[in-house]
Design a protein around this nucleic acid. Sequence first.
DNA 1: AAACTTAATAGTAATCATTACTAGAAACTT
DNA 2: AAGTTTCTAGTAATGATTACTATTAAGTTT
Lengths: 151, 151
Amino acid sequence: MEKKTENKLGAIRLSPQRRLILEEVMGTKKHPTADVIYRNVKHKLPNISLGTVYRNLESLSENGYIQRIDTGTGPRRYDGDTRPHAHIRCTSCDSLEDLPEKNLLEKFLLRELKTDYYIQEVIIEIRGLCPECQQSDIPEDIRQNPLQVEP
Amino acid sequence: MEKKTENKLGAIRLSPQRRLILEEVMGTKKHPTADVIYRNVKHKLPNISLGTVYRNLESLSENGYIQRIDTGTGPRRYDGDTRPHAHIRCTSCDSLEDLPEKNLLEKFLLRELKTDYYIQEVIIEIRGLCPECQQSDIPEDIRQNPLQVEP
DNA sequence: AAACTTAATAGTAATCATTACTAGAAACTT
DNA sequence: AAGTTTCTAGTAATGATTACTATTAAGTTT
C-alpha cells in the first residue's frame, strides 16, 4: 500500500520550498522577479537559497505551473497565470528573423500567418508609461515618443 | 567657413568605429548580438574594444539609427531596420501589468487599445522552429507543443 | 524496516552579458 | 594654439543566472 506522502505536482515533488515559491508566484499579479520571490519566501523559510528559488522557478515553469516572462529589459519575471499572452525566433538554433511585417497582426488574427516556422509561442509586450508615472516631473519634451499610428 | 570634417550623424559623430558598427548592423538581416558585431568589425579594426561596440550600439539606437531588440532569451540583438515591429511595462517605474487580454490584438488593430498607459512601444515576438530545425532529429512527441488556435 | 536510488536542498563558485571607470586620443570651438 | 567635448581602448565591476558540491529528504526495493 502507498504511504501517504508529501504532495506531488505531476512529475515533480512539491517540497516545502517549491510549494512556497509556487504560492508566492500564484498569489500576486505583480510578476515578480526571482530576487523578489526569494526575499519574500525567506520570511517563512529563512534558510532557503537563491539557487533553490531559481531552480524551482525553472522546474515549475518547465512543467507548466507558472509562466516565465522573458522580456529582455531587466531581470526575468514570473507569472502564475499561464496563458500565451511578433520577430520570430527559432527555439532550436536561436536564429531570429523578420516576419513579413505588413498586416502581421491582421494575418495573425485571421490565423493565416504565412511563415515556414513551426509556431510555439507568441509574445506581445507593450511598453509605455503607467498612469502614475505620467504625472511625474518629467517634462513632455524629454519623454520618449509615444507610439505613432499611421492613418 | 566650416572645415570639412568627419561625417556627422545628427547629434553624434560618425567615428570610424561607429561607422563600421553601423554598417555591420545595416548590412545584415541576421539581428546580430554585440558579440557577433564585435568579432566582425574586429577584422577591419583589430584594436576596437568590446566596450566601444556596446557604447555605440547604445548611442546609435538611442538616436534612432538602429533598433535594439530586447527579447529576453539570450543576449540582446540589434536591427538596422528601425520600425516598431503586447504585457505592458512602465518604462519609468518598471512595473509590469497585464493588459486585458481579450481582444487585445483586435483592439490594437482598431487603435482602441483601452489602457491608461502612455504607449511607447509594442513588441511582438513569435517563437517557433525554423524550417531547417523542423527536420532535425528531434521526434515529434518530445517537441514543444505548437501554438493552439481556438476555432 | 534496512539498503538503495533518486530528487531536492543550501551554500558557494563560476559564467555571461552588460555597464562603469580611467587615462589618453581625436575632433570640434574659440 | 588652447580649451572643451566626444570618443576610444582597456580593464574592472556589476547583476542575473547557472553550475557545482556535499548533504538531506523522500520514494522504492527487497
